[in-house]
Amino acid sequence: MAVIKTENLSHVYSEGTPFVKTAIENINIEIEEGQMVGVIGHTGSGKSTLIQHFNGLLQPTSGKIYIDGEDMWADKNKLRDIRFKVGLVFQYPEYQLFEETCYKDIAFGPKNMGLPDDEIDKRVREAAAFVNLSEEQLMKSPFELSGGQKRRVAIAGVLAMKPKVLILDEPTAGLDPKGRDRILGQIKEYHQEEKNTVLIVSHSMEDVAKFAQKVLVMNRSKVFLYDTVEAVFAHAKEISEIGLAVPQITQIFAELKKRGYDVNPDVYTIEAAKAELIRLLEEGGNISA
């Protein structure tokens, strides 16, 4: 069953004023349990608005959202429970840290859930281990840490709530490539271990190709494409028409194919490219044309 399902979901900001703006329009999607989904789109395409609907921070102007088959806004008293079920990590989450120590900050979410102390302790340590925070760092003030470390503390704060669905809004924005790979790796590891559903908003097609099973492409407040990675990147032309690029490696393989090499153009990662090239060379590197 779909863990998140939307029906004609629309959201309009500042309705009834001259500044009215439709952020998302008629969104109908289903997100299956246990999947890793990449959400891609331009700035202002409605990505952030959409994901804030998934945990009830924004109320739809029209349409419905179902979490585990239950209408989210049917009972407002249950909204808080939904926020524990659907964990959301905002952009630049390091700016939300406030406690004296990282340990206490990570414990904020679990504490709000009303868990017993030993469970909180267990979860904080588990979450910290996932994001590679040492015991010593846990006892430090978050303000003593570096930017990348702070971000990992903030992500751990949401991981510790063990949400059924984990949503991250550009978790790698402003990080160097090493920090980026590290955080994405940790999220993937978490996903594999917990078997939960993960949504990652990203600007980078490369990143999405690396981790996601399905891709949701947003364009101008609407869903442009929502399908498996292969199926989405098969629409390379349409994607570049709306100003987004498929991964560089896919572009190269499309070009190779065009020049007559017998390659499979559905290549999205460096690993797959390597395998494909080796296969081609073993077959003698024939130019079919």
Partner: peptide, 16 residues
């Protein structure tokens, strides 16, 4: 804007 963002972030962590 910043306040709005932080309120949302803490709400997402179950702040009541």
């Amino acid at each position: 804007e910043e306040t709005d963002k932080i309120i949302n972030a803490q709400k997402a962590r179950g702040a009541d």
